[in-house]
Write a protein that binds this DNA or RNA. Structure first.
Lengths: 213, 213
DNA sequence: CCTCTTTTGTGATTTTTTTAACAATAACCG
DNA sequence: CGGTTATTGTTAAAAAAATCACAAAAGAGG
């Protein structure tokens, strides 16, 4: 009955992009105490068509039940598992500047199982400083720290000029994924996953659309 | 010779998404003193195929010259114009929390012509405080400020619970575009442009890809 | 326990996006 | 100043993504 969760079938990037959104809205529904939902209803809430939603979900398994719909809790948990946020993961952050500090202070991601384990910088004025319970370490310790502490995600919030160098060190130390806030497209081997938050690009796209209107 | 810059031909979202990247790499090339470049070469640098690059650019005009390629400076300026960053625009920011403060302090976008004109919050402890040259105003002043000061972009960095309310006020006051950092999909009329920076979604996508590998 | 209704999962179709191919055009060089 | 080469702009083909449509399955109600 259950579809092969085999990696052999490549999941389209467009589908991956929508997964977190499904997860977010399901969380809301769960908090509202909603028990079941149809693809039609969930699609309307999320802003995708019902068939698309069903097709997206079916890349990962058959989570629904004909004549009934989807159980909200079950689907929420299934998606969490698909995205790998059932088992917690540890992160390090390099670059305790503006955005870096904002991330350290907010730690919004901890409630989704992403723990910030240590933070690093090169600036001697910052090293040793405590920010929201974490002491800024010297970036020279980065490589050893990653290797010794089961870290699989690295957050890069350094200026463009040093982003690639930081990424290289993380990769050498065995990191699996990089969450990159530097306005740089990192050069990485294919087994290293990168997700970019190129904020300025977002603003430029907005500007284009505003002008277009 | 020049193609119609008519809005009648809808520009695909996929194309819009790539424009800022082209712009960024052209800026680099310009700084390196590069004078001309072929679609083949630029495509390799940016990471898109040469035909795609040409087709993308041709949505907006014929910027190249056969047998020569593209003049870097000319193309850079043309793209800047396409994206509407030739004329400066003024922004307001609401929500002087972690990310809000980071944006106010860095002001990375000012060098691209986006000026932060005023910042707002509801927290009495923050109102009156000066951050990087800007005094935090009470959010009750928001509507009048926007209406009176030629503001066309609003930055939302408030918690999810108040994001929609802030957006509503901005829209009522006549804003054109919203750069939204709240983990919420804002409900807006079709003439209002929204660009979301849903950071947590990025991290979840990364998690998925890391797990998949 | 049978019929009717709901709603999924999925194969077929349409639309969109990307890639390929090439004719047209301009620079370059002797 | 003409031939050769480079490279665009654009049309056509291929690939990818989204939508449609419907058979199959499960629940609900009598």
């Amino acid at each position: 009955m259950t579809k092969e969760t085999d990696e052999s079938i490549m999941v389209p990037a467009a589908v991956i992009k929508r997964l977190p959104k499904y997860h977010r809205y399901l969380e809301e529904l769960l908090n509202e105490g909603r028990e079941k939902i149809s693809s039609q209803q969930l699609g309307e809430i999320v802003g995708v068509s019902a068939p698309q939603l069903r097709q997206d979900l079916n890349y990962f398994g058959n989570f629904g039940q004909q004549g009934y719909g989807y159980n909200v809790k079950k689907l929420y948990n299934s998606l969490a598992e698909v995205m790998g946020i059932q088992q917690k993961s540890n992160m390090v952050l390099v670059g305790v500047g503006n955005i870096g500090q904002a991330l350290v202070n907010s730690r919004d991601f901890e409630k989704r199982g992403f723990y910030l384990s240590a933070i690093f910088d090169t600036n001697p004025k910052l090293i040793g400083l405590e920010i929201n319970g974490l002491v800024v370490k010297d970036v020279v310790e980065l490589k050893d720290y990653i290797a010794e502490n089961d870290i699989n995600i690295g957050v890069i919030t350094v200026p463009a000029s040093s982003a690639q160098e930081v990424a290289n060190q993380m990769i050498k130390a065995g990191i699996k994924g990089i969450w990159n806030f530097s306005p740089v497209d990192l050069k990485t081997p294919p087994n290293i996953q990168v997700e970019n938050e190129h904020l300025t690009e977002g603003l430029l796209r907005l500007s284009f659309k505003v002008k277009e209107e």
